[in-house]
């Protein structure tokens, strides 16, 4: 009997085909979905993007941050500042916001990378608060009460409301595909191997010449830039920004951590499962106010006790499944051996 070394399995091939079909169906959503659904879908994509990015940082690079709202808010504010005062097209402003976030994340990283574990987490939160307080001081952007995106700028996106809504939808799904593909190919590259090695055993990786500090910095910078782009898109959907909303630790970090932990940290599939569960709970329970938050907390506690590796961890362990093939596996087959 011959064996073959491969990354894909029959399940992963099938699942990927189903997923590709789903993406195609979702791409046609502006033709069949109502206004409210379109908006909800857009929000789901943006949350899933944030979850994937946080998962890359915490689950693969070991950078457990509770301060990524700094970059969500930064991206949002850059959209407003650059469109209102520099007269740039909103989409260009969002991309520029991502680049600026990358630039600002480097000095931030040199500061907070001195901290480890829980101290690092708290440090990132402090940085986010500094961002919030700083933007609240800028009266040109509405200070503490915030500002709205002027109508002329909104209209520069597209003339009709429905055209704007489908553009906003495509930007959201497009950035999700971009974020997901970027992470997937990063993890499959040599750099991904180094990243996994750091997660498994930091000092053993360093001994082999892996520059742990720089690898983490690269992940932090890329994640922060993409998070700012998602932040820009979030506030392009909302059309209004304020320091409280832009730098909300609940909205942009606590819910995102919930999604990743419930779904399964350190897996590509986890954030997808987590996002589905989060939105199912939110859409069915949001009317109950604080009770809804208590139920979220309860779900988190139960999952952490019963399935510490998240729901996807539970499924993949029991059935040895992987939708996005990252591991190698040996397959028995009739074909000749290949490397």
């Amino acid at each position: 009997m011959n064996t073959r070394v491969t990354r894909s399995s029959r399940f992963s091939n099938g699942a990927l085909a189903v997923l590709a079909l789903l993406v195609v169906v979702l791409l046609t959503a502006p033709w069949w979905a109502g206004r409210a659904e379109l908006r909800l879908f857009g929000e789901i994509y943006l949350y899933l993007s944030l979850a994937c990015l946080w998962n890359l940082m915490a689950g693969y690079a070991g950078l457990v941050s509770v301060g990524q709202q700094a970059y969500v808010g930064f991206g949002g504010y850059m959209l407003f500042a650059l469109t209102i005062y520099a007269g740039i097209h909103p989409v260009a402003a969002i991309i520029a916001g991502g680049l600026l976030a990358a630039a600002i994340s480097i000095p931030v990283a040199t500061l907070i990378f001195r901290l480890n574990g829980a101290y690092f987490a708290i440090g990132t939160w402090v940085v986010a608060e500094v961002f919030r307080l700083s933007f609240a001081q800028v009266s040109a952007l509405g200070g503490g009460s915030g500002s709205s995106l002027p109508v002329a700028i909104v209209k520069s996106l597209a003339d009709s409301r429905s055209a704007r809504e489908s553009l906003s939808y495509y930007l959201a799904i497009g950035s999700l595909i971009l974020v997901f593909a970027a992470i997937y190919f990063l993890l499959r590259s040599n750099r991904g191997i180094a990243l996994t090695a750091i997660r498994d055993n930091e000092s053993a990786a360093a001994e082999l010449g892996v520059n742990v500090w720089r690898t983490k910095l690269e992940i932090y910078v890329v994640t922060s830039a993409l998070t700012a782009i998602i932040g820009g898109l979030i506030f392009l959907q909302k059309l209004r920004i304020s320091p409280e909303a832009a730098f909300s630790v609940n909205d942009w970090t606590a819910f995102v951590i919930f999604i990743v932990v419930i779904g399964g940290i350190g897996t590509l599939e986890g954030p997808i499962i987590g996002t589905i569960i989060f939105f199912l709970l939110r859409e069915t329970l949001a009317d109950f106010g604080t009770t809804y938050l208590m139920i979220l907390g309860l779900v988190a506690i139960i999952v952490m006790i019963k399935a510490p590796k998240g729901l996807w961890g539970l499924i993949s362990q029991r059935y040895d499944l992987e939708i996005f093939p990252l591991r190698y596996r040996v397959q028995q087959s009739a074909t000749t051996e290949q490397g």
Binding site: I193, N201, R327
Partner: peptide
């Protein structure tokens, strides 16, 4: 990592392999 680049390698006590990686990936690292 700078020491490693100079040409000093360590085979650590207890092997310290990376459990998430295959044999070939461990070697490639």
């Amino acid at each position: 990592d700078k020491v490693a680049k100079l040409g000093i390698a360590l085979v650590p006590e207890g092997r310290q392999l990376f459990p998430s990686l295959s044999v070939e990936e461990n070697l490639k690292l």
